[in-house]
């Protein structure tokens, strides 16, 4: 069972929604790939400083093609630019920022999230070459760890579960999940529904979720602009 495409948010819209919750003055790390999109939708008037694990604070968007400096890259190994006030540092300082609790927000992708906050996002457990990067550090370092993800897998399986079945990235670390259908907080070992698309019924949303969606307070409409 899947939600049809016209009834769910695009990746850009999920990223937009996550960006609205990043406060002025926040230090933020965005995971490689999809989470990098969040920076594009930072609301005007807020100063947000982005951290990249390889050793830059306050980097900006990609330079024009042909103007790349390959000593100036982000954790996804894409060329970036600097903003006034940026800083370089070595890897132990970079992960002191992460592991020392100095980041306000980390936003990561997910294969699975469990109602107790467990995250699986680094290995599908199959054969092949395992690779972890900084994900296991980020989930225990940032004050707030949020996930952006499709609500279900490509084959329609729930990604929000009672327990993760894939190898864990971290235990009890995720506090909020932005999906293609809803915004869900993790509180007291439960998924608490905060927002859902107005076009989906609660029953339908529950049927696409692998654990109970708890109602604790009002559920707002998840309203996102066309992007």
């Amino acid at each position: 069972m899947t939600a049809s495409d016209d009834l769910k948010l695009s990746n850009a819209q999920i990223a937009w929604r996550a960006a609205q919750d990043i406060a002025d003055g926040a230090y933020v790390n965005l995971g490689i790939g999809f989470p990098e999109m969040v920076a594009r939708y930072q609301p005007a008037g807020r100063e947000v400083i982005y951290h990249t694990e390889n050793g830059i604070l306050d980097f900006g968007q990609e330079p024009p093609a042909g103007e790349e400096d390959w000593d100036l890259i982000n954790a996804g190994k894409k060329a970036v630019t600097l903003k006034p006030g940026s800083a370089f540092f070595h890897h132990a300082d970079s992960f002191a920022m992460v592991r020392g609790g100095h980041l306000d927000v980390a936003i990561l992708g997910a294969y699975q999230v469990a109602q107790n906050g467990d995250l699986a996002n680094w290995s599908v457990g199959a054969k092949g070459v395992p690779a972890v990067g900084g994900a296991m550090d980020l989930v225990h370092g940032a004050r707030r760890v949020a996930v952006i993800t499709e609500h279900v897998t490509k084959s329609g399986e729930p990604k929000l579960l009672e327990r993760c079945t894939l190898p864990l990235t971290g235990v009890g670390c995720v506090t909020r999940v932005y999906t293609s259908l809803a915004v869900v907080d993790i509180e007291g070992g439960r998924f608490v529904l905060r927002e859902k698309l107005p076009t989906i019924t609660l029953e339908k949303l529950q049927s696409l979720t692998g654990a109970e969606l708890v109602l604790a307070g009002p559920v707002a409409d998840l309203i996102v602009p066309e992007l």
Partner: peptide
């Protein structure tokens, strides 16, 4: 042979 180490742990082990 591969010894896979989380990135921050790798940096801190070297430090």
């Amino acid at each position: 042979e591969l010894e896979l180490v989380p990135q921050g742990t790798l940096a801190e082990r070297i430090r």
